[in-house]
Each structure stands twice: as structure tokens, then as C-alpha cells.
Simulated assay, not measured.
Amino acid sequence: MVEIVKTYKQSIPALRFIGIKYGDQDRVNGSYAAKWGEWFESDRFNKLQSLLTNNFKDDYEDANTNIGLMRWKEGEPFEYWIGMFLPEDAVAPEGFGYIDFQASNLGVCWVKGSIPEVYRNELECANKLSEEGHEIIKDEQEAWWFFERYGCPRFTRPDENGNVILDICHFVN
């Protein structure tokens, strides 16, 4: 059973997301798990971790986490990016793209459960955040951005029942 065990608002500095964009055509059995496997096999995260700075880690407590960033807008192709949030002046390595985000706030939900049940709970988290008075915001093009944040050790060390905690985050006012 999946449960939202914690919600909170988090301020983040201006930052640059660096990663690789995928679409619905890249899903295998409805999932991007194969793409994640490619990332780990090719050490892509190590390339990005080398771009982290101590100042950025001080400004953003969840700096050293892998991110599944999503963009959704009615009538446009769904985007799923794998990568990391990095300092706003980080240079994307060859083969990677980037998206800049201004300083803003996140509505964060900790989703506890087994894998794969913790995935695909973005709407439930959006509803929970809205119930708690957070306004989920769109970007300048009227698109929604949200993401999975794989925090250590919450996600990487299952509890005695095999459950992990996946952060699902939405941009909020």
C-alpha cells in the first residue's frame, strides 16, 4: 500500500537541470526503467555529480539526488528527463540538455511504499498539496513541471517491510 507520509514546502535557489529528454516513444512496458538502467550502466550520473559545488550543496539540501523531471501540457508531447539539479551556471556535458529554473518553492510529498507502487502518484500528490493550501503553478508556456527525487537513504535503503520513500515534487507559490 502506498501512503503519503509527509508533505512540506521547500525553497530552492535558481538552478539548472542537466539531463537527457525522453518521450512516450522511449517507454518500455509503460516505464522509463530501461532508460534509468542505461544511465547507471554508462555512469552518466557521475559526470553530473562532478558539476556539484559546495556552495550549491549548502543552498539546496537535496542537491546530490537523481531526478526524473516531467513536463506536461495539454496537446503537447509529454517530456520525461533524467538528470540532476545543478548550479545555475553549470555547463552541460556533450550529449546532455538543460533547463533553467528560477528560485522558487516546491511542494514536496514523501510517498512511502514498495517499488513500483511508489511511482505514478504525481496527481495524488498534487491533490494532497492543494488540499493543504499550496497552489501548484505552471510555467510561462502554461505547462506543468514536476519530478521524482530519489533521496538517499530514503529511497536507496528499504525499511524492514521493503518500503522506500520517493519524493514527488511540484512547483508551488
Rank of each mutant, 00 (worst) to 15 (best):
V172M: 02
K47S: 11
N55A: 13
K21H: 01
R154E: 15
D100W: 05
A103N: 10
P158S: 09
R27A: 09
T65Q: 08
Y119D: 04
I137A: 02
Y22C: 01
E124A: 15
D139Y: 06
E160K: 12
R44Q: 10
V28Q: 07
I99T: 11
G30I: 06
F40S: 08
A143F: 12
Q141M: 14
N66C: 13
S130T: 15
E94A: 13
M1C: 11
I12E: 03
L52T: 06
Q25Y: 04
K57V: 10
K73N: 05
A92N: 02
N66Y: 03
A33K: 04
A103T: 09
V118K: 02
I137R: 08
G19S: 06
R120W: 07
R120T: 06
T65V: 13
E131P: 04
P153N: 05
K112G: 09
R71M: 11
E61V: 15
G95C: 07
I168T: 09
Y8F: 14
N105S: 14
G75D: 14
W81Q: 01
F171S: 01
L106Q: 03
A103I: 12
M1L: 13
S104L: 09
E131H: 11
G19V: 01
C109S: 13
E94D: 15
F96T: 00
N163A: 13
D159A: 10
E3H: 13
E135Q: 13
D167T: 11
Y98A: 05
R149M: 12
P87L: 04
L129D: 01
P77V: 05
E3N: 15
E3Y: 12
K112P: 11
Y150E: 03
F147G: 04
L166E: 03
V5K: 13
A92D: 04
F101W: 10
W36R: 00
L15F: 08
I115M: 11
L51G: 04
V91Y: 07
F171M: 05
K6I: 07
A34D: 14
K9G: 02
V118M: 08
Y98C: 05
E3T: 14
K21I: 00
N64P: 01
S11D: 13
F96P: 02
S42G: 08
I115N: 09
S11E: 15
L86E: 01
D26S: 03
D100S: 07
Q25T: 14
S130G: 09
G19W: 00
I20H: 03
